[in-house]
Amino acid sequence: MAPAPSRNDDGRVRAANVRTALALASIAAVFFGGVIAAKFMGGWTTGMGVVGFAVLLFLGFAIGRNLWRGRR
């Protein structure tokens, strides 16, 4: 067994994996729901807003997470 704590500590890796996956899945859900909802309300600008906001959100999430990991 190698002395690699992040790998041997299965519970922590798994929890981190699930957190990442949920965040990613929520992005997918926002895009799917957003595109239909915006159409339903009939505003093309609303649609673009939702989609653009989600793009920024996931970029921010990815960068922020990376910075946070780097600091630790």
């Binding site: 997918a28 799917f32 729901g33 595109v35 239909i36």
Partner: peptide, 13 residues
């Protein structure tokens, strides 16, 4: 992750 849901939304409509 960003665009497949958009396609799914479009074909759902």
């Amino acid at each position: 992750i960003a665009v497949m849901p958009v396609l799914a939304g479009a074909v759902t409509m």
